[in-house]
Amino acid sequence: MIRNLYSFLNQNFEGLILTPPLFYSWNNSIRFEISNPIKPHYSKENLQQTFQRSITLFKKVFNERDEILLVTDVLTTRNNHFLQRKPLNVYKKYLKDKNLLYKLHHQLLGRFFEDEADEMVIHRFLLQCKKNTIRYVPLLKAICYEDYAHSSTILKSNQESGYEIYFVNLNKKIIFHLYDDRGCDILAADKEDIRYLYEEFNDWILDYDRKRIDHLFE
């Protein structure tokens, strides 16, 4: 499974490393604004927009037949044994079929920062699945809630760690990354495969990056 991910990236996204910000690492990409920056993030109206946009984009990118790689990276210190005591609940909580947990793959990646006293590592979890096997609506909402004190927070018992979740569409060669409630990066091997998103949701594009995105689809 690990080899499948890297083979897919090498063939379709040469040189891309799965780490944020993905939008600035790949030319064929769109950055969508998810929440309204001029309104309180936790307001009911803003949460409704956040959920509606993230879920709508996900449904547009993935259909029921697509093979999906659900990739979760947890960044933490090497001496943090939280994941050994309590396996990551992204898969336990948001999979409809718990038998799929037996197909979950794990990889430990080293990562170093000059200004960090402790060595940092990334626990990478991968699972190949389909849209109808994921409870994607509550999962997307949990990602949007991550900066709030909310019961659905994914790492609420391990606040010293950070995480990123990537949805990789193996059929359409598209990567979907809702990085938090602020925005969502969508990358494609071929820009024409996401032109429909650019046209249909043009008013959702983040204005800060609009010039670059418009130029891509000229």
Score class of each variant (00 low, 15 high):
Asp209Glu: 14
Glu45Ile: 13
Phe125Gly: 00
Ile174Arg: 10
Asn46Glu: 12
Pro37Met: 05
Ile205Pro: 04
Lys173Arg: 15
Arg182Leu: 01
Leu16Pro: 07
Asn169Met: 08
Glu116Ile: 04
Asn63Ala: 04
Leu104Cys: 02
Tyr179Met: 04
Gln52Ser: 11
Arg124Met: 02
Asn4Phe: 01
Asn89Tyr: 05
Gly15Trp: 11
Glu192Phe: 09
Pro40Val: 02
Ile68Gly: 12
Leu126Val: 01
Arg212Met: 09
Asp185Ser: 13
Gln49Trp: 00
His105Gly: 01
Arg111Val: 04
Ser152Met: 11
Met1Ala: 04
Glu199Leu: 14
Leu18Asn: 06
Asp190Arg: 11
Tyr148Arg: 07
Ile213Phe: 09
Tyr136Phe: 15
Tyr42Val: 15
Thr50Pro: 00
Asp97Ile: 03
Lys103Asp: 09
Leu70Gly: 04
Leu75Cys: 07
Leu197Gln: 11
Met120Pro: 02
Leu95Ile: 00
Tyr136Pro: 12
Tyr163Ile: 11
Leu104Lys: 08
Ile17Trp: 07
Phe82Tyr: 15
Leu197Asn: 07
Tyr179Val: 05
Arg78Val: 11
Lys173Gln: 15
Lys39Trp: 10
Arg182Asn: 06
Glu164Cys: 03
Tyr24Lys: 12
Lys131Pro: 02
Met120Phe: 14
His177Pro: 03
Arg31Asp: 09
Tyr24Ile: 09
Gln128His: 03
Gln107Met: 13
His81Trp: 01
Leu88Glu: 08
Leu47Gly: 04
Tyr136Val: 05
Ile174Ser: 10
Asp147Trp: 15
